[in-house]
């Protein structure tokens, strides 16, 4: 599977990473280089194999339902690039 320019553009848009027109070709080449190398995995027979999601605990450990956090609006907002009073500010979103 090899990426065409349109796909590179679509993936970059999905990932919200701006790629200038002039950067597309290089990105395409790099991604195809990596994907080409990954392609060898298709040779592995994985029939009947249960996918492994991760290591660690085998099951969730629930916590009790108690309010133990919050009430720290100032800390939550302290690093905001555009703090608007008690809110985070972003360019107006049109729904």
């Amino acid at each position: 599977m090899s990426l065409d320019i349109a796909t590179v553009r679509r993936i970059a848009a999905l990932a919200r990473i701006r790629l200038e027109e002039g950067e597309l070709a290089q990105a395409q080449a790099e991604l195809n280089g990596i994907l080409g190398w990954i392609e060898q995995l298709q040779a592995v027979n994985t029939e009947g194999v249960e996918p492994m999601a991760g290591g660690g605990a085998v099951a969730l450990r629930p916590r009790p339902d108690a309010v133990t956090d919050g009430g720290i609006a100032d800390k939550i907002l302290a690093n905001a690039p555009d703090r608007q009073g008690e809110y985070f500010g972003v360019p107006k979103v049109v729904e």
Partner: peptide, 30 residues
């Protein structure tokens, strides 16, 4: 980082998940 985000976005995207991500999870199990 940008390169890896793009690769990661691609292998999870519609139509490629099974061929890449799911396949990788199975090989991880092996």
């Amino acid at each position: 980082v940008r390169r890896r985000i793009l690769i990661g976005t691609y292998v999870l995207s519609a139509g490629y998940y099974d061929a890449y991500y799911l396949k990788a999870q199975k090989i991880r199990a092996l």
